[in-house]
Design a binder for these strands. Structure first.
Length: 365
DNA sequence: CGGATTTGACCAGCGC
DNA sequence: GCGCTGGTCAAATCCG
């Protein structure tokens, strides 16, 4: 039993090491058993949250002063190439303190960015998210019958004699589910947050559309989709099997709309009306690119004792546009410090396996 | 009653 | 080709 687990851990660690070894070979030091995460994960209720009470993510980060933008995530989900229409008037910010007792929250996060596939920011934005289009013909399958009947003639014949078999008919209805062949994956980035609640409030509204058991983990993985029409952004939320207090959130895609809600005005970033959500500040691109795959310590709002550790894991060919558009602006905005310890943090923790796709890990070979 | 969540099944990609 | 696994669908159910 334990042996097996150890083996798995070894494997995980080796993967993580692969990930960073060529960048920082000395960074293989110990991680310290996840001790970098010491946020007091208070169970905070959140306005835009769900019934189980999602945590105000931005509040955890303490980014709720000095800003006026609707959402932090507006900023990093909007690709610059979208050239969207002028944003709607922003709702007034509410008081942060009134909604969330975020003082004294000491949070550290590990953020990983990944672009598993060619960046969609190139020429076909959102092309792969057809399934999120409410007008997708697919969805008409709910009304069932004719199409499906045609599609499933054979199976239907086979099961005709058992009409009371509801399971079968159910399957028949489910079958015509057809997907876009060779669907492109949106660029993703993930970050780990020490939190007791799974669903961190980022200002957007999400609908849960699935949950799966995660291999080698007692915790399930939840799948969420942005509820805004036409917005194909998805996110995955799961807990680390190593440290149940660590929530790994993976975002995929970029929002095509402004942040619908502004809970407590927590997530403000200097808002640039001309780009509805794009940050008005950016880390100088050359510098950033130069530091790709290097871990960053993100220090925010010292008075809040909040520290975020971030690491980008973009592949060299696909990262630049994505970084510009999707990398959390709040991380871009603040200063970054590159430290070996942060690298080791990500390596030895073993959580990297949850975030970096296997293809990417192999690429590092 | 409408929207969100749950949950079992389906589908596709990948490794063997 | 087969099995495994991640991701998604959609009917059923829950909840405000």
């Amino acid at each position: 039993m334990e042996k097996k687990k150890e083996e798995e851990k070894k494997e995980i660690n080796s993967m993580a090491n692969l990930r960073f070894s060529d960048e920082n070979p000395t960074a293989a030091s110990s991680f310290g058993g996840g001790s970098i995460f010491d946020m007091a994960a208070g169970a905070c209720d959140v306005s835009g949250g769900d019934k189980w009470g999602s945590l105000g993510f931005m509040d955890l980060l303490g980014i709720h002063q000095d800003f006026s933008a609707p959402s932090l995530f507006d900023s990093f989900h909007h690709p610059p190439i979208l050239s969207p229409p002028p944003p709607p008037p922003l709702p007034p910010l509410s008081s942060a303190s009134e909604l969330l007792p975020s003082e004294n929250i000491d949070t550290k996060q590990v953020l990983l960015q990944q672009t598993s596939l060619p960046s969609p920011a190139s020429t076909v934005p959102e092309s792969s998210e057809v399934l999120n289009n409410p007008a997708t013909p697919n969805s008409s399958s709910i009304s069932s019958s004719s199409n499906e009947a045609a599609n499933d003639d054979q199976t239907k014949l086979a099961g005709d004699d058992e009409e009371q078999d509801q399971d079968k008919s159910k399957k028949l209805q489910l079958k015509p589910k057809k997907k876009n062949p060779k669907r492109q994956r949106e660029p993703r980035f993930a970050f780990m947050t020490k939190s007791e609640v799974d669903h961190l409030d980022d200002g957007y509204r999400w609908r849960k559309y699935g949950q799966k058991a995660v291999k080698n983990s007692p915790y399930p993985r939840s799948y969420y989709r942005c509820t805004s029409a036409g917005c194909g952004v998805k996110k995955r939320v799961e807990r680390s099997s190593d440290d149940s207090t660590i929530v790994v959130t993976t975002y995929e895609g970029q929002h095509t709309h402004p942040c619908p809600i502004t809970p407590r005005g927590t997530i403000g970033i200097a808002h640039d009306p001309s780009s509805f959500g794009a940050p008005s500040f950016v880390v100088p691109q050359p510098q950033y690119l130069h530091q790709q795959q290097q871990p960053y310590i993100y220090t925010s709002s010292p008075s809040m004792n909040i520290t975020t550790t971030t690491t980008t894991t973009s592949t060299s060919t696909t990262s630049s546009s994505f970084i510009n558009s999707s990398f959390p602006a709040f991380l871009q905005e603040r200063r970054f410090m590159t430290t070996p310890s942060a690298a080791s943090l990500l390596r030895d923790d073993g959580l990297l396996q949850d975030i970096v796709p296997s293809q990417m890990r192999k690429l590092e070979d």
